[in-house]
Simulated assay, not measured.
Amino acid sequence: MALAYNTGHCDDFALPGGQAQRSPPAPARIRWTSLALIHPTARMMNNAQGRTMHCMICGGPTAYYFSKQYDGPYGIFMTDIPSVDYAICGSCGFVFSMTHQALDADRWSRLNVEFHDHCAQVPYDQKPNSPPYAEQALMLGLAATGTIIDASSMLDYAGGRGILSRLVADLFAMRLDVYEPFVRDEGVSYLDKGDLTKYKVVFNSAMFEHVLCRQDLDDVNDLVDPDGVLIVHTVVGERVPQDPSWFYLTPPVHTAFHTNRSMAVLMEQWGYTCSIYAPKAKSWILLKGDVSRVLDQADAINRRLKTQWLIAKEGFVDYWK
């Protein structure tokens, strides 16, 4: 299965003019019924028995949500895909592209290659939503010195051109291995898929929005050691806007959109008990074990920095309402 990754478009929910917004607009009321009855793509996505598609996160019922047509700079990659149709889960609010799921592997891979080749040509100072690499490196350094994470074995899964790995090495003398199935950059030592093992820390930046099936998510979590942590950088809000112009739909390789509820479900399914959110790094650390210990560790770092740099709680930190 080909995946897209690291588009550099992860940011807070945004209003026109660049203003931040803590809560995306509420979606219109959805009538929960068979996908096959209400949209052509949904009919194609149903199985031979005619059963309704279920959410890859929680197994709940899904319904057609809205459609989007791509034009502008990314329209050239979508000339044979006139419309992208999205469905929403009635239980956890997870939203996914039915159209992308229906693409064959070659077309999906070609879309990824074309898009990322295009992004590679954009100067860094013209990328408005690049991942906060410096803040992510600082988060890893603080978490390691504060014993929140064990930095003895760390992996950046779908780590792109290894920017975070190099920063962590330069700033904190820590090793962050990189697995990246598509791109290569000189000076980065990449792991092949067959070399992957279990890690105390698995970092995953801007890939959770590129998945086509549940296995794509489980493949990442399966690399986490039984007492390790999973770190996720993506956009998560209370709900996904029912709006084709929503900024996070702009990259044509974004296919999956998470909510506070869907992430809480994933945490529970994977056995994580608590989480830490670093707003400046826009990343969540998912942890197992003693919740009170994690809360104390995060508080110790905040007191050291004289600011609430980390937010910790039992379950998923639903920071964006």
Rank of each mutant, 00 (worst) to 15 (best):
residue 1 M to F: 10
residue 2 A to T: 13
residue 4 A to F: 06
residue 5 Y to E: 12
residue 5 Y to S: 14
residue 6 N to S: 05
residue 6 N to I: 04
residue 8 G to L: 02
residue 16 P to F: 10
residue 17 G to Y: 09
residue 20 A to W: 08
residue 20 A to G: 12
residue 23 S to V: 10
residue 26 A to T: 07
residue 26 A to P: 07
residue 27 P to C: 02
residue 29 R to Q: 09
residue 30 I to H: 00
residue 32 W to C: 12
residue 32 W to S: 11
residue 33 T to Q: 12
residue 42 A to D: 07
residue 47 N to F: 12
residue 59 G to N: 05
residue 63 A to G: 15
residue 64 Y to M: 00
residue 67 S to E: 08
residue 70 Y to N: 00
residue 71 D to Y: 08
residue 74 Y to H: 11
residue 77 F to R: 00
residue 78 M to D: 13
residue 78 M to Y: 01
residue 78 M to C: 08
residue 79 T to F: 00
residue 79 T to P: 09
residue 82 P to K: 01
residue 85 D to R: 14
residue 85 D to I: 02
residue 86 Y to G: 00
residue 88 I to K: 03
residue 90 G to Q: 03
residue 92 C to T: 10
residue 95 V to C: 12
residue 96 F to E: 04
residue 96 F to S: 06
residue 101 Q to Y: 13
residue 101 Q to V: 11
residue 101 Q to M: 12
residue 103 L to K: 02
residue 105 A to K: 03
residue 105 A to R: 02
residue 105 A to N: 03
residue 106 D to Q: 12
residue 108 W to Q: 06
residue 112 N to Y: 04
residue 117 D to P: 12
residue 120 A to H: 11
residue 121 Q to F: 14
residue 122 V to M: 13
residue 126 Q to T: 04
residue 127 K to M: 11
residue 127 K to C: 05
residue 128 P to K: 05
residue 132 P to W: 12
residue 134 A to I: 11
residue 134 A to M: 04
residue 135 E to R: 14
residue 137 A to N: 01
residue 140 L to G: 01
residue 142 L to E: 07
residue 142 L to R: 02
residue 143 A to C: 09
residue 145 T to P: 00
residue 146 G to I: 06
residue 148 I to C: 06
residue 149 I to V: 03
residue 149 I to S: 11
residue 152 S to Y: 08
residue 152 S to C: 07
residue 153 S to L: 08
residue 153 S to V: 09
residue 153 S to H: 15
residue 154 M to R: 13
residue 154 M to E: 08
residue 156 D to R: 00
residue 157 Y to K: 01
residue 166 R to C: 02
residue 172 F to V: 13
residue 172 F to N: 14
residue 174 M to G: 14
residue 175 R to W: 14
residue 179 Y to C: 00
residue 179 Y to A: 03
residue 185 D to S: 05
residue 186 E to F: 04
residue 187 G to A: 00
residue 189 S to N: 15
residue 189 S to Y: 01
residue 191 L to Q: 08
residue 192 D to G: 15
residue 196 L to P: 09
residue 208 F to S: 09
residue 210 H to C: 09
residue 212 L to C: 10
residue 217 L to G: 07
residue 221 N to P: 03
residue 231 I to P: 04
residue 233 H to P: 04
residue 237 G to N: 14
residue 240 V to S: 14
residue 241 P to Y: 15
residue 242 Q to V: 05
residue 245 S to W: 13
residue 247 F to I: 04
residue 251 P to N: 09
residue 251 P to W: 06
residue 252 P to K: 04
residue 255 T to I: 03
residue 258 H to V: 01
residue 261 R to Y: 06
residue 261 R to T: 10
residue 266 L to W: 08
residue 270 W to E: 12
residue 273 T to M: 05
residue 274 C to W: 07
residue 276 I to K: 11
residue 281 A to L: 08
residue 282 K to H: 03
residue 284 W to F: 01
residue 285 I to D: 15
residue 287 L to V: 04
residue 287 L to S: 06
residue 288 K to C: 13
residue 289 G to I: 09
residue 311 I to M: 05
residue 318 D to C: 01
residue 319 Y to D: 05
residue 319 Y to R: 01
residue 320 W to Q: 02
residue 320 W to H: 09
residue 320 W to E: 04
